[in-house]
């Protein structure tokens, strides 16, 4: 069986190859001049933040989202790009302890921040309890949304603990509990096209020490 990095390499190679082929097919001879000019390289800006406890310093086009900084510049590809518009939650990371959509935030706005990605939650040898629970309860099928689901799930249990209110709450003055209906409501910013929702809720319930 090939290692994960080999699979990753060949998949990327294939994608790059197909894109090049498509360009050749779509451009008849002599059409080169009509190709739109490449966008001018924008001046870059320095930014320093901590990712998974490690100090990082980057020089970035200000347009770079936190998501692209993590994936393309720091090669932390665990965080995924789904919709790139804050609708799917695949890009969820924690910044200064709270979950956000990393696709809807500019990297340069995070000077001095502490960012935690899926790579910082656990490793294959030392899984975070939420990662272990997702495996145990089959909280995924294709796995693409999973890093975002897990980051969000960890943050949701913390939000419940801190008493952050939700739409599912009856009385706003009582502390919320990690009930199934609470977790489903709070996880609504994470889409799973495979539909692993009920297993995700069970994984979360196990970590919360509650019954799904």
């Amino acid at each position: 069986m090939p290692s994960v990095s080999e699979v990753e390499f060949s998949r990327r190679g294939l994608l790059a190859g197909s894109a090049a082929t498509a360009v050749i097919v779509a451009s008849p001879a002599g059409a080169v001049a009509t190709t739109p000019p490449k966008a001018e390289a924008a001046p870059t800006m320095p930014v320093r933040f901590k990712v998974n406890g490690e100090k990082r310093e980057l020089s970035l086009d200000p347009r770079t989202t936190l998501l692209d900084a993590l994936r393309e510049h720091l090669h932390l590809t665990g965080t995924k790009k789904g919709c790139d518009h804050g609708q799917c939650g695949a890009c969820t990371v924690m910044v200064d302890g709270v979950r956000i959509n990393s696709c809807l935030s500019l990297a340069v706005m995070h000077e001095g921040d502490e960012i935690t990605t899926i790579e910082g939650l656990g490793t294959p040898d030392k899984l975070h309890p939420m990662q272990a629970a997702f495996i145990k309860h089959d909280g995924y099928q294709c796995g693409y949304c999973t890093p975002g689901q897990i980051c969000s799930a960890v943050a949701v249990l913390d939000e419940i603990k801190r008493g952050v209110p939700s739409h599912a709450q009856g009385d706003l003055m009582t502390k919320p509990t990690a009930s199934n209906v609470e977790m489903r409501e709070r996880m609504s910013g994470n889409i799973c096209r495979c539909g692993a929702y009920s297993n995700i809720a069970e994984a979360m319930a196990e970590v919360a020490g509650a019954k799904a």
């Binding site: 956000i100 809807l104 969000s152 943050a155 939700s166 996880m187």
Partner: peptide, 12 residues
């Protein structure tokens, strides 16, 4: 507020 957007968006 909690009827709007998602938890991630409300945090930002």
């Amino acid at each position: 507020i909690v009827a709007g957007a998602s938890g991630q968006l409300r945090n930002k």
